[in-house]
Design a protein around this nucleic acid. Structure first.
Length: 179
DNA sequence: GGAACGATCTGC
DNA sequence: CAGATCGTTCCC
């Protein structure tokens, strides 16, 4: 059980996104295995970084391994892992986790609903990831950790178009662990 | 200063 | 399938 290497996260977002599959996201007693990711490159019109750095997306321009949390639809938070060299503005959206530890707490945080972390906003709610965690380091002494337990990413991840965006909808930058 | 629009989720 | 709900961005 070791932190994901910063080197691994230094590549292009669409290369790193499938490599994050099967890694673990840990916050306190709650752990989830990452089973769906989505790449956002800086040259992508659908990326928050496309129009340059702003107060909202500043964390995206940090070092690889930085957590970028954003608020959307007036009620939801979503979590990204910053990738690429510092200042580039690339990230991988975490879209789904399979709960590994802390299911009871996750269920409580999810209001008793059965779906715990199978969506980008749901996983933030389940792991209690919020704006206070924006720009924290996932590979260091921060509250949230990105860990490698030795499980390899899938040899043949399912690849498809991204979801919930209106630009670059055809780019095959969504990755999933096959079941 | 104002309006439009979301990297979503839920309940009907 | 539409409503919730508000920060960010962009345009005037």
């Amino acid at each position: 059980m070791i932190p994901v290497s910063r080197e691994l996260l230094g590549g292009d977002a669409d290369v790193v996104a499938p490599l994050l599959l099967n890694k673990l996201l840990v916050h306190g007693s709650c752990t989830g295995r990452i089973v769906e990711t989505e790449a956002y490159r800086p040259d992508d019109p659908a990326s928050h970084s496309y129009r340059g750095q702003t107060a909202r997306n500043a964390a995206m321009f940090g070092s690889p391994g930085t957590l970028y949390v954003y608020f959307t639809y007036g009620m939801h938070y979503c979590a990204n892992v910053v990738t690429g060299p510092p200042g580039e503005g690339a990230a991988v959206l975490l879209r789904a986790l399979v709960p590994v530890t802390g299911q009871d707490l996750m269920r409580t945080r999810r209001g008793g609903r059965p779906a715990l972390a199978d969506g980008p906003a749901k996983l933030c709610q389940a792991l209690a990831i919020g704006p206070e965690h924006n720009a924290s380091d996932l590979l260091g002494g921060g509250p949230i950790h990105l860990l490698d337990d030795g499980s390899a990413p899938p040899a043949q991840p399912l690849v498809g178009p991204r979801i919930g965006i209106s630009k670059s909808v055809d780019a095959p930058w969504r990755f999933r662990v096959p079941r």
